[in-house]
Design a protein around this nucleic acid. Structure first.
Lengths: 132, 132
DNA sequence: CAAGAGATAAGAATAATTCTAATCTGCGCT
DNA sequence: AGCGCAGATTAGAATTATTCTTATCTCTTG
């Protein structure tokens, strides 16, 4: 499906900048990116877009289910183009995120606190350079 | 063991502010707190301490293994006085963190990327207000 | 108790993000 | 095809959490 059609499908007007950002993000899968990084890529691709719009767009896409926010670093948000349920390796040295594709099963979890319901379950495996 | 002895044990000089903060943090277990919150508590307890020192102290305590940093919110760091291996419920509405005391077992994880080793595994169960 | 290493404080600096208000643009309607 | 306007974008200011800087202070050791 074209990027324009996907945007229309989630009720977002396919403006020049939204289409350009969606192309960068969605046309090659498996991306993990911060707002700054995406802004940089957009400028590199000669797309005129402000940082504020990058932030707006990332949040709108997330709300629309086109992206998923991954929280692994205090003070920086990562967005993942893989919206299916999955988990991550996070390299604390390089700041790189890697999808865990395999099916992971968690057992032994208690029920959520009363009055609340589970919204999402995130597993982050923090890794660092091997040392022996 | 006294707070002063614990600080000495990890190589930190038991200064007035470190002792006071350690008392607030460690003498009642199971706390999850941000730097701002701890600074507020210190002032409420008539402990004269700057925010910068609260940040320094939290990081030093974490490095020394007296605290554990929990990353659940982009743009805010939580510190947990429970340093044993455990996981969390995070209420996205209230911003409250709750320890998961039960033994949780994760199966199906692939090996970490080559050249890296696992440093820590975090599970965050994000919950929100129940709605039906 | 003096000296010096290490600790603290206040405010400036930084980084990521959000807000503001003014201008622009996609799109339905004619 | 052109109009009008709701919604989108922008630049820059503002905000928030955190870190840095540098001068002053205070534990500890001799």
């Amino acid at each position: 499906m074209s990027v324009v059609a996907r945007l229309r499908g989630v009720g977002l007007r396919p403006t020049r900048q939204r289409v350009a950002l969606a192309r960068l993000l969605l046309e090659k899968g498996g991306r993990h990116i911060t707002a700054e990084q995406l802004h940089g890529e957009a400028r590199a691709a000669a797309v005129r877009v402000s940082l504020a719009t990058v932030y707006n767009t990332l949040h709108q896409f997330t709300e629309a289910g086109l992206l998923r926010e991954v929280i692994v670093d205090p003070g920086r948000s990562y967005f993942d183009t893989n919206t299916s349920e999955h988990h991550h390796f996070f390299d604390e040295g390089t700041g790189e995120l890697l999808d865990i594709g395999a099916d992971v099963v968690v057992s032994g979890l208690p029920l959520p606190p009363s009055g609340t319901q589970v919204h999402r379950l995130d597993i982050v495996v923090r890794v660092g350079p091997e040392r022996r």
